[in-house]
Nucleic acid binder design. Structure first.
Lengths: 212, 212
DNA sequence: GTCTATATTAAGATAGAC
DNA sequence: GTCTATCTTAATATAGAC
C-alpha cells in the first residue's frame, strides 16, 4: 500500500481509465434512451439505470442532461457523413452511388439507434443541428451534387436532380432504421430480417434510375 | 330572456356548437404542439395557450393529455391510408402507382404536421399504433402487394419486390414532411418550395423503376 | 363551461457525507 | 468518485367558486 498522494501519474491513469469506462457507459445508455424516447421523453433516471450508475454520478461526468445529448449528436456526425464524403469523383458513377447506398443501408442496419437519434432531432425542428445542417452538411451536399451533375452532363448516368437524388438515398436507407418497427410489423414474423431484401430492392431501384 | 332550464333542446344545441368549436381548437392546437415536440415534449400549457383556452378547460373536454393524443392519432389514420386504398387493380399499373406517389407527396405537402405526428410515434416504437400496424395496415399492404405482384407477373410493370416498393413510396414522400427542416436548409433559400422539384424527381424515379 | 387555486408527482440538479 | 438526501421547478390533474 502506497501513501496517499504518491505516484500521481498512476493515480491519474487510474482515474482516466475509470472515467473512460463510465463516460462510455453513460453515452451508450444515453444513446439507448434518447433514441427510444427523444430528448424530452428521456429521463436521467432511466439513463442512470441503464448505465448502472447513480443519477448524481451521471452529473459528476456531465454537467447536464443537455450536455450528454449534445455530446452524442456531435460525436455521431462524422459517422453519419463519412459515406457521402467517400463518394469518389474519379470512380465509376453508378458503382459509386450504389456503394454509397449500400454503406448508408449498412449504417441503418448496424447503428439504428444513431439514426433514430438524428431523426428525432430533425423531426422536431433540428434545434441543435440547424447550424451543422446549414453549414457543413449543405457544403458537402453542394460539392457532391456537383460531382453527380458532372456525371449526368457527361452521359455517364441518366439525368437526375442531384440534391433530390441524395435526399432519396437518405430517405430510403434511413427508413429501415427509423421506421424499423413498422417495417417489421408489416412484413410479419415470416421475414425477420428486412435488410437483405431491402439491399436488393434498393440496388435495383438505383440501377434502373441511373444506369444509362 | 328565458328561464333557466327552459328549451333544453336549444341549450343542448348551444352546448354542442361550443363543444365542437372548442374540441376542434384543442385538437388543432394539440396537433401543432405534439407534432413539433413529441408526446412527452408537449405540455398541456402549450396546447392550452395555442388553443386559447385555460388548462383546466382542456381537461373539461378531454380526460387527459394521453386522450387528446390518442384521438389525434386514430382520427388521422384514414387520411393516411386512403391513398393506398385508392390503388385500383383495374387501372393502368404505372399510372396507378404514380398517382399513389403523387397523392402521398401531396399529403406531405398539405399535412406535414400529421406526418410528423406519425413519425414521432413510429420512431419511438409505435407504442400506441402497433396494433393498427400489425392489423389493418398489414392487411392493406398484403392486399395491395398482391395487386402489384400480379401486375409484375403479367409483365405490365418491371419485376419489383411489392412490399419494399410500398416502403419506398412511404419513405420518399414522407421524407419531405418529416425532414422538411433539413431539406430546406440543404437546398438553401434560393429554393423555398422543394415540392414541385420533388414531384418531378419522384415521377422520374418510379417511372424508370417500373415502366416496362 | 370556465376560471383561480392547489394537490401531487416527476425530473433536473445540488449539498454534503464518506 | 460515489452515494443518500434534498432542493426546485415544472407538469398533469383536480377542487371548488362563479
Amino acid at each position: 500500500m502506497r501513501a496517499r498522494g504518491a505516484r500521481p501519474v498512476n493515480e491519474a491513469r487510474t482515474r482516466t481509465r475509470i472515467q473512460r469506462r463510465n463516460t462510455g457507459a453513460i453515452l451508450e445508455a444515453a444513446l439507448e434512451v434518447f433514441s427510444a424516447h427523444g430528448f424530452r421523453g428521456a429521463t436521467l433516471d432511466q439513463i442512470a439505470e441503464v448505465a448502472g450508475l447513480s443519477k448524481p454520478n451521471l452529473l459528476y461526468y456531465f454537467p447536464s442532461k443537455e450536455a450528454i445529448h449534445l455530446e452524442l449528436l456531435t460525436g455521431l456526425l462524422d459517422l453519419w457523413l463519412d459515406p457521402l464524403r467517400a463518394l469518389d469523383p474519379a470512380g465509376e458513377p453508378v458503382a459509386e452511388i450504389l456503394a454509397y447506398v449500400r454503406r448508408k443501408l449498412e449504417l441503418s442496419r448496424d447503428f439504428p439507434r444513431e439514426s433514430r437519434l438524428f431523426a428525432n432531432e430533425v423531426l422536431q425542428g433540428a434545434p441543435r443541428l440547424s447550424g451543422v445542417i446549414a453549414g457543413d452538411l449543405r457544403a458537402l451536399v453542394d460539392e457532391k451534387a456537383g460531382v453527380i451533375s458532372a456525371w449526368a452532363a457527361a452521359g455517364r448516368i441518366r439525368p437526375v436532380h442531384p440534391r433530390h437524388l441524395i435526399f432519396s438515398i437518405w430517405a430510403l436507407t434511413q427508413h429501415y432504421a427509423d421506421f424499423d418497427v413498422q417495417v417489421r410489423l408489416v412484413l410479419g414474423p415470416a421475414e425477420p430480417d428486412p435488410f437483405p431484401e431491402a439491399g436488393r430492392h434498393l440496388t435495383a431501384l438505383f440501377t434502373r434510375l441511373l444506369a444509362p
